[in-house]
Design a protein around this nucleic acid. Structure first.
Lengths: 243, 243
DNA sequence: TCTCGGTATGTGGTCAGACCATAGTAGATC
DNA sequence: GATCTACTATGGTCTGACCACATACCGAGA
């Protein structure tokens, strides 16, 4: 089930290595445009096909965005979406039954409750305030009965990621988002009845309000507890039955 | 810095989707061989080049292993290395300065100390015993002064991953391993002087022994504390100076 | 002179077809 | 029966072509 033997060096590896080195050295930065694929191919003495392999990898890792046409927005542009690659990996391994949804949820509880405990609003007062305001805005949008289920889930996800971001650890924030994305379909599929959904959503709203209030008031341990309870409640009550 | 616009459907996507669906349905399992690339190309009505894009993605995600030749070990075979994809993603984003080594270390402390607290040896007595024995074997190998630095780091990594596995959460185990792999080079480069290394390694050995003992004896909170201190000590004392 | 619109150029996206090294397998040879 | 040799199918790589797209350029018209 596990292999990590020599592996005979892929042709695209030098491209990845050189880009990684340029990034580390600071000669390439987020927002920059990579050289054209044809140019990279010539530079490394490989075919364009192999260069494209490297680009594909960087793309799924959330490191570059490819666009056709010309101009600054076209070409292979360096971006930063750490959660993209992580969530794809998690997703595939959940699909292959090597990771379970229960483990994902458990991990999410760990990360989110830690983030709640580690949140220090005074560290970056103005940024924290902006984040809290944005979170409040999300909750408001979620109050609207006209909000479709899919949109509600997206808002919900953004709410949790926002709160996690207050802890100031981008790694944990990215992992949080990844965990959520990786089981997104499972959650969506688990609630089939609209009646069930209506019954659930009002509780979610109340829990969200409580969580936001405790975070905003600096009641860290309350926030951590409420977040953990919130996640447990949702997955016990809603997601589990169909799994 | 962030884009999540429509994105005009890649040609390889249907291949990924169908493989993911087959995995979820249980019609494909780890160890199975995927159809040949030429066959998949015909099935989906796309070129072999696009099929290879999908394979490349699955490969870096740690979901398939590609091998030339024929027979059961050749072709695109389903494997399971969840840490492969996650660590690559983390690595690239650390390189692009979007994630910091400090955050990686902080996350590792969180996951490992949680695992120590969550370890329940009685849940799977025989498996736990085997894991502890293997961990003890690793420590023994690390006692040998003849062990090269690189090997020591590998043994060290396996030791930590093994202990984490006792908590029984494969997601956290995979993340732990990924975090370690992602900053492997930084750690290796940070200790340049052999004299420094000799001074450090004996402390590491002692800490490892203490950690293993506390885990084996079920002193969970001790284990959690020692692990956290161990990681903090190493990165404060050794890795930080050069960063 | 200014504006509009068509065109040239360069980008990634995809395809078709070819050749290679590899690793089993089946057949021929001894 | 054992050994060696083609044969076959696999992924790995390359070449060269065409497409859709988006900008930049430039000439025709107002």
């Amino acid at each position: 089930m596990n292999e990590q033997l020599p592996a005979p060096a892929k042709a695209y590896q030098p491209v990845l290595d050189s880009i990684e080195a340029e990034l580390r050295a600071g000669r390439l930065r987020v927002g920059d445009q990579l050289p054209g694929e044809r140019a990279l191919a010539e530079q490394h003495g490989i075919s364009r096909a192999s260069v494209r392999d490297a680009m594909r990898i960087l793309e799924v890792m959330g490191v570059v965005r490819s666009g056709t046409g010309s101009g600054p927005t076209a070409g292979n542009v360096l971006i930063s979406r750490p959660a993209a690659g992580i969530s794809t990996a998690l997703r595939m391994h959940v699909a292959s039954a090597q990771l379970s949804v229960e483990e994902i949820v458990q991990t999410r509880i760990l990360l989110e409750s830690w983030a709640a405990e580690a949140t220090d609003l005074e560290a970056h007062p103005e940024r924290s305030r902006a984040v809290l305001d944005e979170a409040a805005g999300l909750l408001e949008a979620m109050e609207d009965p006209a909000t479709p289920r899919g949109d509600f889930h997206d808002l919900d996800a953004r709410f949790h990621v926002l709160l996690t971001s207050l802890a100031g650890n981008a790694v944990i924030e990215a992992m949080m988002e990844s965990l959520r994305l990786s089981i997104r379909d499972y959650v969506a599929e688990s609630i089939t009845s609209e009646a069930d959904w209506d019954r659930v959503v009002s509780t979610l709203r109340a829990q969200h309000r409580e969580i936001l209030a405790s975070v905003a008031e600096g009641r860290r341990s309350d926030a951590a507890r409420l977040v953990a309870e919130h996640i447990v409640w949702f997955h016990d009550r809603v997601a589990k039955p169909t799994r």
